[in-house]
Design a protein around this nucleic acid. Sequence first.
DNA 1: TGACATATATCCGTAACGGATATACTGTTT
DNA 2: AAACAGTATATCCGTTACGGATATATGTCA
Lengths: 115, 115
Amino acid sequence: MAVKSTAPPPLTPAVFHILLALSQGERHGYGIMKQVEADSRGAVAMGPGTLYGSIKRMIEAGLIQECDKRVDPEMDDERRIYYELTPAGSAALAVELQRYRDVVAVAQIRIVYGH
Amino acid sequence: MAVKSTAPPPLTPAVFHILLALSQGERHGYGIMKQVEADSRGAVAMGPGTLYGSIKRMIEAGLIQECDKRVDPEMDDERRIYYELTPAGSAALAVELQRYRDVVAVAQIRIVYGH
DNA sequence: TGACATATATCCGTAACGGATATACTGTTT
DNA sequence: AAACAGTATATCCGTTACGGATATATGTCA
């Protein structure tokens, strides 16, 4: 769906959830998956196809980037690749979140005051 | 994206916005388009391809149905086809709305208390 | 040692999106 | 009266996104 006058690449739900997960701090792929599940109380289950496909697109779009940071080198799994939000990613998340708030507010008014 | 343990057909943003528009009352295609735009403060622009494609799928899924109701026969355009929510559509909207609220709440906590 | 969770990643069929296009009526402007 | 913009429905089809299946390999626990 086209989104007017906001962030250039309109956010899909998968992209939005990944951004939200990374707003919690840097994560590796599997960690993002788990964070998305936690953030949605288990409602959203993201498969590996969606996850890694979205990550690739998001890096190309400049929303996220790989980061070198290794929290604990001793405990670390060498295979892990950590990702973090870019400023553009943070901005896109903020815009999308505001859209979510607006939609919830509109729906709330509709329910309370009965269309 | 898969959505666990809720409504059988996981809602795409287009489907969600159409359901929300119809929660306002019965609408014809073009009316849905305008309502979606209004509900999102002009942020979401749904093209005819997405609109009529989604309507077709939603009727098949039992989320909406055509209704005979003609508000004002004198003022009416014969071409108009009106749609309304089915009970299943209302239920799916309610579930999806709760997911939106949850996501907004999670994000809000993250912002206020800083991850 | 078998099973399960963690972890990354690709492949590819299916579904959804969305612009372009077509048609036609209505209402307003010049 | 002609021209234009807006309303209204609808299809076509290229592009994108989704997401299950699959592959591989390590860590962990009973």
